[in-house]
Design a protein around this nucleic acid. Structure first.
Lengths: 217, 217
DNA sequence: ATTATCTATAGATCTATAGATAATGC
DNA sequence: ATTATCTATAGATCTATAGATAATGC
């Protein structure tokens, strides 16, 4: 029966509801990007151009909305990473490409990246999002003999932290060449993972895939 | 005249005032460590065991208190770092020692470290605190030919980010051997800065100074 | 006498909900 | 007929201050 069918085609009503939810999450991201969590629900619904009462159709509390906002950003980032590394075989190159492309992503959607920065190193211990992917990349590179490190987990925290540092730098210095800076840092991280300077620099000067279209965000 | 003398000996009244201020900052740190900034001033003064109205003798707003709390943690951290590296000549070793000791610090004052983690990579672009010191260490090591990297600033963001990642890991995994893990990560960062694996591992297995006494925090 | 603390409270703000309105489904 | 949105509001909470109390200085 229709009540059990989980995959009903979304109706127009569903789409309207989704639009309202998306507007709330988008507004929450804007506040989050500036670290402004001490805003009232009224301010959020005003920013989202949504009636105040509608908030409670979607979220129980401000905290629930902010959590959903972070998750939504992570979802976009994971989709970005998956698209970008598709087609690479060498796990070290998968790692390098996603690192290099993430730096470039900052110039494309700085607001979204700021939400990640606001979340800080906590993103690295979440069990969803980028941490499991990066962990998997690093483990694969160790198995393939490309990385020489004692612990994948430690490598994840080091590389993930360095990546956040890179994003913070790019955010603070709008005039820097994001690609150049990202490539340099990626090479140094690879060197820390046991690659020679030559191999690391070489891997970080190869052609990159096209930037995915993220204009809908 | 006495009103111009900036360095009057602190009177008992001054000390009482300082105690109240310290109690407020300490309570703010506890909330900050758990990311709970959405607390009322009443909750803060209750936690500090201080009368509600006293808050306004010291701070104009909740935000001002939280900012002062972060600064006070950074002050302690800088003092810790300065004490720990005193007596080392080699700038690479200064860097290694402060990195290795900071990991161990997490087990000593986890609450305080959590305040730093909550601040995230923003600490790396503050013009006071650890960033200028670390930047100076890295520049000195580059000049001395110990580090081979293109940009000290980039090195700061990579190493600082990795350090935050280390602290996050230690916070999330209480059973890890903090010294062991910190030494491993420090060595990998040094490798990324151009040192050979052997030199890096060697530098990270040397004796360390005694942990400074931080029991007053 | 001076200064900081405390308690009490007025007014502002914020949350959660009730009930009305508008949009969509059938 | 159903569902989501909107507006309005009661009650809760929070902030900032006034005035009383306690501690210290001289």
């Amino acid at each position: 029966m229709s009540t059990e069918a989980a995959a009903e085609r979304p109706t127009r009503l569903d789409r309207r509801k989704e639009r309202t939810r998306a507007a709330l999450i988008s507004a929450a991201c804007e506040f989050l990007a500036h670290g402004r969590t001490a805003v009232s629900i009224q301010q959020i619904t005003d920013a989202a151009d949504v009636g105040f009462g509608s908030f409670y159709n979607h979220f129980d509390s401000k905290e629930a909305l902010f959590e959903a906002a972070v998750e939504s950003v992570l979802d976009v980032y994971v989709a970005f990473r998956d698209e970008v590394v598709a087609g690479y075989e060498d796990p070290a190159e998968v790692f390098a490409v996603s690192f290099r492309m993430t730096g470039r992503l900052q110039r494309q959607i700085p607001e979204m990246v700021r939400v990640l920065l606001n979340e800080g190193t906590r993103v690295l211990t979440r069990d969803k999002g980028l941490a499991p992917r990066a962990m998997h990349d690093i483990e694969a590179a160790i198995s393939a003999g490309r990385f020489d490190i004692e612990s994948a987990r430690l490598g994840l925290m080091a590389a993930g932290g360095a990546l956040l540092g890179l994003l913070q730098l790019l955010d603070a210095e709008p005039d820097l060449d994001a690609g150049e800076v990202a490539d340099l840092m990626t090479a140094r991280v690879l060197q820390g993972f046991g690659m020679s300077k030559e191999d690391a620099d070489d891997l970080c000067s190869r052609d990159l895939p096209a930037q995915p279209d993220l204009s809908q965000f």
